[in-house]
Computed example of a mutant assay.
Amino acid sequence: MAVPVAKEKKGGVASPAPLARHARKTEASAKQEAPMSAETHYLAVFTSDKTGPKWRAWRAMSEADQAETARLGVAAVADWEAAHRDSIVYQGGPLGPTKRIGDDGAVTDMVNLLTVFMVVRADSHEAAVRLFVNHPHMSIFVCDGVEVMPVLG
């Protein structure tokens, strides 16, 4: 499945292309999907400080440099996904603007570090975390980490 190269404009600044993809299941996960259990399934959430140095560097790039970085990054993400297809349970996708409701019922807009998510399977929590070493979202794009936690239900 081809990964679309798309850019969103936010405040006149192009966002990295993989962050604009829609959530989708991989072909392998559609064939192998099983009920989630705490022993094997992990939620991975990529984080990115929208005010941090990686975003400042992205915004400082010319549109041509952003496009070339996005081209290289999209290809690298597709390669990573192909190499890890047996571990990907749910492809996930980018996370949009956040709203929060408090216990008082008040709804507010907010910004957090959560950027992209996916669900993977692994033999252990440590193995799940290690799947993301040198992931293109961190090595090419603007994510600065991946939080990985077991799915408990």
Rank of each mutant, 00 (worst) to 15 (best):
V120C: 01
R56H: 12
P94H: 13
L95Y: 10
A67T: 14
V89W: 08
E39T: 12
P4T: 13
M138F: 04
R71D: 12
D123L: 09
V3K: 08
E68P: 15
W80Q: 02
G102F: 13
V148H: 06
V89T: 12
F117E: 09
S37M: 15
A76G: 05
Q91N: 14
A14H: 07
T51Q: 10
A83T: 03
D49A: 05
T47C: 08
A76M: 00
A78E: 09
H41Y: 12
G96H: 14
I88W: 00
P150V: 07
E68N: 13
A70K: 00
S29F: 01
L114N: 12
E8T: 09
L131Y: 05
H137C: 11
E8L: 14
V129C: 07
S139F: 06
R71H: 11
L152R: 09
A2C: 04
L43Y: 04
A106T: 07
H22V: 14
W55Y: 06
A75S: 05
D123F: 02
T47G: 11
A75L: 02
R121S: 14
E33D: 14
A78W: 01
A75G: 10
V5C: 13
M61V: 08
R59M: 15
E33M: 15
N112T: 02
L19C: 05
A106P: 06
C143Y: 00
H22A: 15
P16C: 02
S15G: 05
L43Q: 07
T98R: 01
T47F: 04
P4S: 12
K10G: 11
V148I: 00
G52D: 02
I101E: 09
M61L: 14
S87E: 05
K10D: 11
F46E: 06
F141G: 03
I88P: 10
D104R: 14
T40Y: 15
R24Y: 13
T69C: 13
G153V: 04
E27R: 07
H135A: 03
K99T: 11
L19G: 05
P4L: 03
S48Y: 04
P4H: 05
A82N: 01
H135S: 08
G153E: 05
V3R: 08
M61N: 09
A57V: 13
P18I: 00
K10Y: 10
D123G: 15
Q66C: 11
A82S: 04
V77N: 06
R59Y: 14
V74P: 02
R71L: 15
A6E: 06
R21V: 03
P150T: 07
A17E: 02
G102Y: 13
A2N: 07
R71F: 09
R56I: 14
